[in-house]
């Protein structure tokens, strides 16, 4: 059975559609899952159609859930150089983390918002395809050892290039450190503020009715083929307020048609003015 056939079975029997993921990478990860589980093709097909728990685990395994606290630390001062002027002075603003994985970037961003005195006005939304990731995001509990270096790198970065004057952050305000159990636990006041939902970007249905000032979607669309990427860019364009911004991964860029719908503004892609035709 070739992997495209399997993806069709998955699509027909579950809510998950991976048929427009990049061929090479989805094939490779699918093969690994099959190998790791020691399944025959028949067992795989059977479990896919009958075992919901298996399907959830499979989705978690074939999607990529890499994230870190303050991932790419050097980029954060650049985000806020562009975002801060647009957000300060607003009564409320909405931020969507699309493909939030375990939520580390969601909380990293909230910490910066709080330091800048913007957290109260912010409404934070986060979505991920995987139920397991949605749970981890809700729990906000991460491995300390894994993040130790990131946190100190981030401290070094903002000492050198402060974020709107912020050059030091007291992490004790945001985390309960439980070093004995190798945990960093996010404090409740941050966790309570995020609205988290399971949502698959591929379905192209919008998860929230409101529009957004900022959409974070870093290193998520790289797993999709170019055709699906375009559809998601269109959806983000529709869901952004005029002059709202989309934040992609460091090595993602818009091509073709969508280059004209967003203007590149440092590491941000900002929705350009759209002409509206008036019918008289």
């Amino acid at each position: 059975m070739d992997f495209k056939h399997y993806l069709q079975v998955l699509k027909d029997n579950t809510p998950y559609d991976f048929s427009n993921y990049s061929d090479n990478s989805i094939k490779r990860r699918l093969q690994k899952v099959i190998l790791d589980n020691g399944l025959t093709i028949d067992e795989l097909l059977d479990k896919t159609q009958t075992d919901k728990g298996f399907v959830e685990r499979l989705v978690e395994d074939i999607t990529v859930n890499t994230t870190e606290l303050f991932r790419d630390p050097e980029i954060w001062p650049q985000f806020y150089e562009k975002l801060y002027p647009a957000l300060k002075g607003k009564k409320t603003f909405n931020i969507w983390h699309a493909g939030c994985s375990s939520g580390m970037e969601v909380y990293s961003n909230m910490i910066i918002l709080n330091e800048l005195g913007l957290l109260e006005q912010a409404r934070i939304f986060a979505t991920d395809i995987s139920l397991g990731m949605v749970r981890q995001c809700t729990n906000g509990s991460y491995r300390y050892e894994f993040n130790k270096k990131q946190l100190s790198d981030f401290e070094d970065i903002i000492k050198k290039s402060p974020i709107q004057g912020i050059s030091k952050i007291d992490f004790n305000k945001y985390f309960d450190f439980d070093l004995e159990n190798d945990r960093i636990n996010i404090k409740d006041f941050l966790k309570k503020k995020v609205e988290i939902r399971q949502h698959d970007l591929v379905q192209e249905k919008v998860p929230f009715y409101n529009k957004f000032d900022v959409i974070f979607c870093r290193n998520v669309l790289i797993y999709f083929n170019a055709n699906l990427q375009s559809k998601i860019y269109q959806m983000f364009h529709n869901q952004l307020y005029p002059k709202g911004s989309m934040i992609l991964g460091n090595h993602e860029s818009l091509t073709g048609f969508y280059k004209t719908k967003f203007s590149k503004n440092g590491p941000l892609y900002t929705k350009t003015n759209v002409f509206h035709f008036k019918y008289q």
Binding site: S25, V64, D72, I222, Y223, N250
Partner: peptide
């Protein structure tokens, strides 16, 4: 690029990944 895996795809493009 730093911190990405880099793959060659059949259509003559690169794809990047942050898997482990």
């Amino acid at each position: 690029p730093s911190n990405y895996h880099m793959f060659v795809e059949y259509d003559g493009t690169f794809s990047l990944s942050t898997e482990k």
